[in-house]
Design a protein around this nucleic acid. Structure first.
Lengths: 240, 240
DNA sequence: TGTCTATAATTGTATATACAAATTTTGGTA
DNA sequence: TACCAAAATTTGTATATACAATTATAGACA
């Protein structure tokens, strides 16, 4: 039998990956903490920068770290993504229940994206974005607080729309056939504004649905949808 | 504003990834087909072998290709996909994040169904049901409060299980291949018991996932899963 | 024919080097 | 002070090179 001249127990980049992973597990690095730069890792582990780069790049691919060019590498914020449900347009949903759909528009303006918004919409900081705030009602009762941010360069006419007949998502889906959608669901307590517009108390838990939609690989919009937990549930049933 | 001297529309390795991905989507390469070697890709796309290597390596990481040293690179065999809804158990999910999974069992007993339970499980009132209460932890931190009700006449050995190695859902899915699953998600405030076992305060909003599973039209179990809203989110992203 | 061996083909890992791009910091100037 | 430009820092990509490890194959030989 042929025997290896020598055998590394593990690839060197794997040693670095394991060390970082373990440090995160042991809470030596907390979410959002910055970890050493590639040059520092290379020096510490006596490898070339490219090897350190590979270790970090793979951990990014596995969702453990995030990187920002020019800034550094950070432990990924707490994130749990267990694929789940399908969620539909609120107006359709209400009408399907044979109830009366209505809405109220509170804001519709052009703003400039900050860092967080730029990340969510995949655009540069300072790029123009349309912001709308509406409340959707079932039989006159608030059911959804809907903030929406739309890439203004892709949908220049967004702010000219009325939205009393057609909801923003209906308008957008006509212009841009939906090709991909992402949902992230959280449980939160409502802000002051949300309490008022949804007519709920401060201690009413709410479902927060973060929805992003793509059309042919273009990220069109990000919506932040808040539902009173005592009036709304999300459901799905499917064959496997 | 500073303008780039030049800007590659896309990294070169991405071009290769896209080309391979597209060829697979268009069925030009079928599952288990061999694809060009790194040297061939390098030549075809006019890049160095390392760049081709990166493209292929990333596609392996994404599950699209498999490689065998000395042999070559092949389109991954057909993989089971459930695009709409993936049933994940919490243990797999945690391990996939490179974290430590553990659990604690608090109860495992046989009870008789009341009206509500009988409805949920599709059985008669008074029928025997197994009830288990566990807390699942990520790195020692409680992440899921899990109550489960199981049709005792279908799973008579449920209460004899240990569940420290294998979670209830892992045990059940071995006995009864999953054919259908229902999820209903709500936002709630935690009960006294949930507060204690999850180590959260009374005003921490929680995600409540109600999950029912069927196997060949038999309703096997109903699970009530409570997650601290500040530690857990549900996500899905899918092509339409 | 059967078996062993050397070789070829292919992927796996590691390094040094170079330049590009994004972000923050620093410092100068009005 | 406010603003702008340059520099420093850090990540992102690309290349050429080298050697290791795995597998199949061709050829030698008994």
């Amino acid at each position: 039998m042929k025997v290896a001249k020598y055998s590394r127990v593990q690839p060197r980049f794997q040693v670095i990956k394991d060390a970082i992973t373990q440090a995160i597990r042991e809470r030596k690095y907390l979410p959002d903490d910055q970890i050493p730069t590639e040059y520092e890792l290379a020096e510490k582990f006596k490898v070339s920068r490219m090897t350190a780069n590979r270790a970090v790049r793979e951990l990014v691919g596995e969702g453990l770290l995030v990187r920002h060019q020019g800034l550094g590498t950070f432990v990924a914020p707490i994130q749990v993504e267990s694929p789940l449900l399908e969620i539909r347009n609120i107006a359709d949903e209400i009408r399907e229940r044979h109830n009366v759909y209505s809405n109220e528009r509170y804001k519709l303006e052009k703003i400039r994206s900050n860092k967080k918004l730029a990340d969510l919409l995949g655009i540069a900081v300072g790029e123009p974005v349309f912001y709308s705030l509406m409340v959707h009602k079932e039989n006159g009762r608030p059911l959804q607080f809907a903030e929406r941010y739309v890439n203004a360069s892709l949908v220049p006419e967004y702010h000219r729309q009325d939205f009393s007949e057609r909801t923003p998502s209906e308008y957008l889906s006509e212009l841009f056939p939906l090709s991909e959608v992402e949902h992230v669901v959280e449980a939160v307590l409502p802000s002051q504004q949300e309490q008022e517009l949804l007519d709920i108390s401060a201690d009413t838990p709410c479902l927060l649905v973060n929805r992003r939609t793509w059309s042919k690989n273009k990220l069109i919009s990000y919506a932040r949808l808040v539902h009173p937990g005592d009036r709304y549930r999300l459901g799905s049933r499917s064959k496997v």
